[in-house]
Amino acid sequence: MGNVNVCLKLFVEYLQIEKNSSQYTIDHYEYAIVEFFEMLAEQGIVNVEEVQYHDARLYLTRLFELKQARKTISRKISSLRSFYKFMLRENLIKENPFSLVVLPKSEKRLPNFFYEDELEVLFQSCKTDTPLGERNLAILELLYATGIRVSECSTIAVKDLDFFLSTVLVKGKGGKERYVPFGTKAAEALKLYVDNGRKRLLEGKPNQDALFLNSRGGALTARGIRLILDKMIEQSSLTAKIHPHKLRHTFATHLLNNGADLRTVQELLGHAFLSSTQIYTHVTNEKLKKTYMAHHPRA
């Protein structure tokens, strides 16, 4: 029963059924577990119960030698710890070899965000004289207005939009749903796209539930949205790089800078824990410090 493939299959079923984890999360777990046992196979270890603490430590050392990011290493160790915790719960092993492995401290990186004047340049560079242009502006306005993840944006259906209440139903991590409000600018861009650009993209093609469509009238993927954002930056006069979470970081930072409370921002972002949202207070505190140093007579 200690066969890795059998145990991994049981663990994946547990993640899917009991934990309701997303496929993205499950893939990360699987990758870490398979990688770990591929390393152990070199030493002749093929069963989960054969693994001991020193094997877990060796894996950790190997990851550092490969110069992997601390965040990546932490995620992999956490995945294996959860895997063995499940095995322990099912009485398939007698001890968890990862229970004493200390996770490396995460690097303290402040979220990267756009300043308001940079964001304005980005909006101004988005031309709306084509269906794809209308779609791109709608994506940009919605991401900034709601702070949703790119993966969440790609799963929005037309029926999830409520123009009367100015809210969108978002399906987040672990299948959790939340309603997020959007403002007048986003509403205008979305209405223009839904009433005009989206209809033109669908001409002569099968109907689609997805809100955002590609040039062929199919559902736009998260990867497609990332490519669109990259192209927007290229076409603007901005030199800053854009990454999937930058508009999300900008949304949270601008809200806090303008007086929003942390709990509200937590709910809007769909964070399970307040600690995930608190990183943004470091950004706003940095702004306070700069303002103080620039304007206080005895700074």
Rank of each mutant, 00 (worst) to 15 (best):
V4Y: 06
V6R: 13
K9Y: 04
K9G: 03
K9N: 13
L10G: 10
F11M: 04
Q16N: 03
E18F: 02
S22T: 11
H28P: 00
E30A: 02
E35A: 08
F37T: 09
Q43M: 07
G44F: 03
G44M: 05
I45R: 04
V48Q: 00
L60F: 14
T61S: 09
T61G: 01
R62T: 12
L63A: 07
L63D: 06
L63C: 12
F64G: 06
F64W: 03
E65H: 10
L66D: 11
Q68K: 07
R70H: 12
R70P: 02
R75Y: 06
K76C: 11
K76H: 09
L80D: 05
R81E: 00
F83S: 01
M87A: 11
E90T: 08
I93L: 09
N96M: 00
P97K: 11
S99M: 10
S99D: 05
L103Q: 12
E107D: 15
E107T: 11
K108Y: 04
K108T: 13
K108V: 12
R109Y: 06
P111I: 05
N112G: 10
F113P: 02
F114P: 04
D117L: 12
L119C: 07
E120T: 14
V121F: 03
L122P: 07
F123S: 03
S125G: 09
S125T: 08
T130F: 02
R135K: 10
L137S: 10
L140W: 01
E141I: 10
Y144G: 00
Y144H: 00
T146Q: 00
I148R: 00
S151K: 07
C153L: 15
C153N: 06
C153T: 08
T155M: 06
A157H: 13
V158G: 11
F163V: 14
F164V: 15
L165K: 15
G183R: 08
T184R: 15
T184F: 11
A186R: 03
E188H: 13
E188K: 15
L190Y: 04
Y193G: 09
D195L: 14
D195T: 12
N196C: 12
K205D: 06
F212R: 04
L213H: 02
L213W: 01
G217N: 04
R223N: 02
G224H: 01
R226H: 08
I228H: 08
I228K: 05
D230F: 06
S237V: 07
L238F: 00
L238Y: 01
L238P: 01
H243Q: 06
R248S: 10
R248M: 13
T250C: 07
T250D: 04
A252K: 12
L255H: 09
L256H: 10
N258K: 13
A260W: 02
A260R: 07
R263W: 01
T264F: 02
V265E: 03
E267P: 09
L269Y: 12
G270T: 07
L288R: 14
M293Q: 14
H295C: 01
A299L: 05
